[in-house]
Amino acid sequence: MTDTKTQDAFKAREQLASAASSEVIIDLNKVNKWFGDFHVLKDIDLIVHKGERIVICGPSGSGKSTLIRCINHLEEHQEGTIIVDGITLDKNLKHIDHIRTEVGMVFQSFNLFPHLSVLENLTLGPIWVRKMPKSEARANAMKYLERVKIPEQADKFPGQLSGGQQQRVAIARSLCMNPKIMLFDEPTSALDPEMIKEVLDVMVELADTGMTMIVVTHEMGFAKTIADRVIFMDEGDIVEENEPNAFFDNPRHERTKLFLSQIL
């Protein structure tokens, strides 16, 4: 009985997932992770297709940040398999380095390099990792700075920019590496309200280009506009997963209902 039920659930999720396209780019299978004794991720299964845009939400401590940090191996999972772009994440450092060049990440606290100018922040990866000639890297960086609408800040240092501008630089820095996947870990949580919009606008534009995106956020308006799927996590579990309209208008799980009633 329970077996068929889980199988049904799995099928339903599969259908939801395959709505976007067919090429699988991230495949998490029974992923478990502990911080000491604390079980943060419990048997997480997740399949992401190329070009899909997924929003993950949930209360703090639910494991949503840990989940996306496992995808580029900033956190190491202990059980289960993670396959990104056809490469299994394991102890092999070469695989990890390779995956990190394919997966861009934007953090809540920006993590720009304060001792380098904005332009140097953007060209560092292409020059040192991609071995791009300097002039080309600079032109490339300016292109992305224009895309996030702050080309005039190229020669400033991160400390001289506002939070919203810094976060847009961080997005541009990731894009300069020409990644296949972009991960966003609460990109607007550290920002003043009037700056949230400028960052979300950039992310919406990025979504329109067909980038595969996984976004941990509580910006529900944003989720409704761009997400193909919304995933709700609680206590290390994926509790509910649905396409955004159904998710917000008709949450089914008790905890989802409670969570949505608190934040909306």
Binding site: L74, G104, F107, N111, L112, W128, V129, A170, S174, M177
Partner: peptide
């Protein structure tokens, strides 16, 4: 966060440290 920022653009140990 500085280490993480460096790792996400693919820098290895020595480049992260040196740059």
């Amino acid at each position: 966060g500085q280490y993480e920022g460096a790792h996400t653009i693919g820098l290895g140990y020595w480049k992260t440290m040196g740059l």
